[in-house]
Amino acid sequence: MSAAPPDNDVLWARGIVKSHHGTPALRGVSIGVRDGEVLAITGPRGSGKSTLLGCLSALLPVDDGEVWFNSAPVHTLTRAGRERLRRDRFGFVGSEPHLVPELTARENVALPLLLAGAGHKAAYGSATEWLERLDVADCATRRPGELVQSQRQRIAVARALAPLPPVVFADDPTAPLHREAQDQVLRILVTAARSHQLTLVLATHEPELARFADRTVALVDGRLATPVAPVPRGASPVSAGR
C-alpha cells in the first residue's frame, strides 16, 4: 500500500531508481511537482536530470519506486497507457529539436494535435498561432533541413506547447542555442506556462537559467542534493593541515 500524494502535487515521485543497462542513473529520488509551478531541476551533466524527466514524463519505466500523476499511478501503467498519457497530458522539449524532417514546420507543430484526434482546421490553426508567438511564422511552410538550429528549437517548443498539455517537460531546451536566444526561448516557455496555468518541469545544467523558475532542486549523481551545512573553519582535518 502506498500513501496518496499530497493534493497540490500534480506530479509526484517517491524513491525512483533507474539504471541504463546496469549504469545507475537515479538512486532513489523523491520529488513533488506542484500544480502550475515552474520547477527547475539543475545539476551537472550525467547527474540524472534527463533520466528523471524521462521517468516523470512516462517515457521510461522506473526500475523501482512510484510515480503518480493527478492521483493516478504512472509506474503501473502498460506501455500503451504510458503512450496515451504522454500524448494527452504531457508535452516534451528535448535538448535537440528532434523534428520530423519531412514535415514542414506547421505540420510538425500540428502533429501532436492531429495525433490526439483534433480536427484538421483546429490543429493547423493552432499551429500557425504558436509559430507566430515563437517568432517563426515565416518558417511555417519550410522543412527543418532548411532552417537554422534556433528556429528548429523554437518549432520544437511550439510543438510541445500547441496542445496545451497540463505538464510540459523541458530537458535542457536551451542547450543548442546562443545566450540571447536561450533567454528568449526560456522566457517564452515560462510565460506560456504561466499564462495557460501549465506546469513546467525544466532541467538545465546552467544554474543561472534556474532564475526563471519558482523553485529549484539540484540533482547530483542520481540523488537530490541536500543543502550542505556550513562547515566551521578549521574543523576539517584537510583544511586544518593547510
Binding site: 517515457l59 503512450e83 504522454r86 516534451f92 528532434h98 523534428l99 520530423v100 501532436p112
Partner: peptide, 10 residues
C-alpha cells in the same frame, strides 16, 4: 525520427 514520434505519443 522514430524516437521523436514515440516521445510525442504516436
Amino acid at each position: 525520427v522514430t524516437a521523436a514520434l514515440l516521445q510525442l505519443g504516436a
